[in-house]
Computed example of a mutant assay.
Amino acid sequence: MKHKFVVGESVHFTASNVARPAASGAYEVVQLLPTDGDDCQYRIKNSTEAFERVAKESQLDVC
Results as ranks from 00 to 15, higher is better:
Lys4Gly: 02
Tyr27Thr: 02
Ser16Leu: 15
Asp61Ser: 13
Ser47Thr: 13
Arg43Gly: 09
Val11Thr: 01
His3Asn: 09
Ala23Asp: 00
Val11Asp: 00
Asp39Ala: 06
Ser24Asp: 12
Asp36Gly: 03
Gln41Met: 15
Thr14Leu: 05
Ser47Val: 12
Ala19Gly: 01
Ser24Lys: 10
Lys56Ser: 02
Lys2Asp: 12
Gln59Asp: 08
Thr14Arg: 00
Cys63Trp: 04
Lys45Ala: 14
Ala50Glu: 15
Val6Leu: 07
Val11Glu: 07
Asp61Trp: 06
Val54Asp: 07
Met1Gln: 10
Ala15Ile: 11
Glu49Trp: 09
Arg53Leu: 14
Asn17Arg: 15
Glu9Cys: 05
Ala23Arg: 08
Val29Ala: 02
Asp38Trp: 04
Asp38Pro: 05
His3Lys: 09
Asp61Tyr: 10
Pro21Tyr: 05
Ser16Glu: 14
Val11Cys: 07
Phe5Trp: 09
Ala19His: 13
Ala22Gly: 10
Val62Pro: 10
Asn46Lys: 06
Gln31Thr: 06
Ala55Glu: 11
Asp36Arg: 05
Gly37Ile: 05
Lys45Leu: 06
Val6Met: 04
Pro21Val: 12
Ala50Arg: 14
Val11Tyr: 02
Gly8Pro: 03
Val6Gly: 09
Cys63Met: 12
Pro21Asn: 11
Ser16Val: 10
Glu57Leu: 08
Pro21Phe: 12
His12Trp: 02
Glu9Met: 14
Asn17Pro: 11
Met1Pro: 14
Ile44Met: 08
Ala15Pro: 14
Glu57Phe: 12
Ser24Ala: 04
Asn46Met: 04
Ala19Asp: 15
Thr14Asn: 12
Ala26Met: 08
Glu49Pro: 00
Glu57Met: 10
Lys45Gln: 06
Asn17Glu: 15
Asp38Thr: 13
Val30Met: 01
Val6Pro: 01
Gln31Leu: 09
Phe5Asp: 07
Ser47Arg: 15
Val18Ser: 01
Arg53Phe: 06
Val11Ser: 07
Arg43Lys: 11
Arg53Pro: 00
Lys4Val: 14
Val7Pro: 01
Asp36Glu: 07
Ile44Glu: 07
Ala19Tyr: 12
Leu33Phe: 10
Ser24Met: 07
Glu52Gln: 14
Leu32Glu: 00
Gln31Glu: 15
Val7Leu: 02
Ala23Gln: 08
Cys40Lys: 02
Val6Trp: 11
Val29Asp: 02
Leu33Thr: 07
Met1Asp: 13
Asp39His: 03
Ala55Lys: 11
Asn17Phe: 13
Gly8Ser: 06
Cys63Asp: 06
Ala15Asn: 10
Arg53Cys: 06
Gln59Met: 08
Gln59Thr: 11
Glu49Ala: 01
Leu60Arg: 09
Thr35Met: 11
Cys63Leu: 14
Ala23Pro: 13
Pro21Thr: 08
Lys56Tyr: 04
Lys2Glu: 03
Leu32Thr: 07
Thr35Ile: 11
Tyr27Cys: 04
Phe51Pro: 06
Leu33Asp: 01
Thr48Arg: 14
Gly8Met: 00
Arg43Cys: 01
His3Asp: 07
Gln41Trp: 00
Gln41Cys: 15
Ser24His: 01
Ala23Gly: 05
Thr48Phe: 04
Lys45Asp: 00
Leu60Trp: 01
Gly37Pro: 10
Glu52Asn: 02
Ala50Asp: 15
Ala22Val: 15
Glu28Leu: 02
Asp39Trp: 03
Tyr27Met: 05
Met1Gly: 13
Tyr42Leu: 01
Asp39Pro: 02
Asp38Tyr: 01
